[in-house]
């Protein structure tokens, strides 16, 4: 852009940096203190002594299991979303079947529907399908309400594939399935990332569906685990903060190892 340094923007960017970092710093600083120190010191004071006790407390209260459950929900949600959305996007771009056209319109409308508003019929449906209190119960509606965005992102990128490529493959004698596997899938790689990351984060962070559709301790996901910590560790803010930070650890690792990929994937939601 311009070569002259932009002082106004620079100053504001530092303000925002403080806004982002201050809460994070407080959480980190509290999570490494003992409860008594946290209560006796001021909130902004540097930890008097560091402790790993909170970490031990959180880990020994089943947080690992919650993360595993969340991971299962996330993986299955992403896989199922892609398995449904990829062929659907292909059909929307290439098919002349009326179903493809009609579905596309429904998906467009579906973008505007707040998933949370449907929780009561979803609850009814899930209990009638005998899926209540299973991880499947979380995956199904999560995938359903993620589908519109997934299909549209994938279709958007497929639209850019030039017709010549399809024709070239056809000349080689490929049927629609072969075109799908050999042409569509490789070309969609960038938007598959986007869909995967977006769906994955949604599933990872989901709260309402697990809250209503599951109950037993063995099936608790990370977000509900955190909520539960509030009553279990209610007295102990440092332990709660440890749980909060720990819940972000897997995503943080991903962020550190593959930041570009994660950021590019998320940005893909906005289209080109």
């Amino acid at each position: 852009m311009t070569r002259r340094p932009n002082w106004v923007a620079g100053g504001l960017s530092c303000v925002w940096l403080a806004v982002v970092l201050l809460p994070l710093w407080l959480m980190v600083s509290w999570s490494v203190q003992l409860r008594q120190d946290y209560l006796d010191q001021g909130p902004f004071d540097f930890p008097r002594a560091f402790t790993a006790k909170n970490l031990g407390d959180v880990l020994s209260s089943g947080f690992g299991d919650y993360l595993v459950n969340t991971a299962i929900v996330t993986v299955f949600s992403v896989v199922l979303t892609l398995a449904l959305a990829l062929p659907a996007a292909y059909a929307i771009v290439r098919s002349r079947a009326w179903l493809a056209t009609a579905s596309f319109r429904v998906f467009l409308l579906g973008l505007a529907i707040p998933a949370q508003a449907t929780i009561i019929p979803v609850y009814w449906l899930i209990t009638r399908l005998e899926l209540y209190d299973t991880l499947t119960a979380i995956v199904l509606p999560t995938v359903a309400f993620g589908l519109p965005l997934a299909v549209l992102v994938l279709a958007g990128s497929l639209r850019d594939v030039s017709r010549d490529l399809y024709e070239a493959m056809t000349l080689d004698g490929a049927g629609p399935f072969l075109v799908f596997v050999k042409l569509v899938l490789p070309l969609c790689r960038a938007s598959v990332t986007t869909v995967g990351i977006y769906t994955g984060l949604n599933a990872w962070n989901g709260f309402l569906f697990p809250l209503i559709l599951t109950q037993s301790d063995e099936l608790r996901v990370m977000t509900l685990g955190l909520w539960n910590f509030q009553s279990e560790f209610g007295v102990n803010t440092p332990a709660l903060m440890t749980g909060v930070l720990l819940s972000a650890l897997p995503v943080l690792v991903l962020y550190i190892l593959a930041r570009r990929w994660l950021v590019a994937g998320l940005a893909g939601v906005g289209g080109k």
Binding site: T127, L131, E218, L219
Partner: peptide
């Protein structure tokens, strides 16, 4: 109707 449902979900639970 609901009987089967809950029985199964409790097994799951």
């Amino acid at each position: 109707l609901a009987g089967g449902t809950t029985g199964a979900l409790m097994l799951g639970a």
